[in-house]
């Protein structure tokens, strides 16, 4: 049986795993035969925005206020 977790807790686990994903993405682009290194700064920036989007999705009632981070 899959244990049900609260939405916020789930989103926090997702945010916690985000650095690993970003590292995978950056490493992949660095090694890419297609020459993707120039995309790395943009990707890191967008992924940071993504972490905030993910947090906002976790607390949907407060989502508009999360964006005040910007």
């Amino acid at each position: 049986m899959i244990g049900r977790k609260g939405r916020l807790r789930r989103q926090l686990i997702i945010v916690g795993s985000a650095p690993g994903t970003i590292v995978d993405l950056v490493r992949g682009m660095w090694r890419s035969p297609g020459g993707r290194r120039w995309m790395i700064p943009l990707v890191i920036f967008l992924c940071s925005v993504g972490v905030i989007l993910t947090l906002a999705a976790g607390v949907e009632a407060l989502a508009p206020f999360i964006y005040s981070i910007f």
Binding site: V49, L53, A56, E60, A61, L62, A63, P64, I66, Y67, F70
Partner: peptide, 16 residues
């Protein structure tokens, strides 16, 4: 309320 909040969040996210 949540629906309104999500519409607002979506609009802000799109703008950003």
């Amino acid at each position: 309320y949540v629906r309104t909040a999500l519409v607002m969040a979506d609009m802000i996210a799109r703008l950003i």
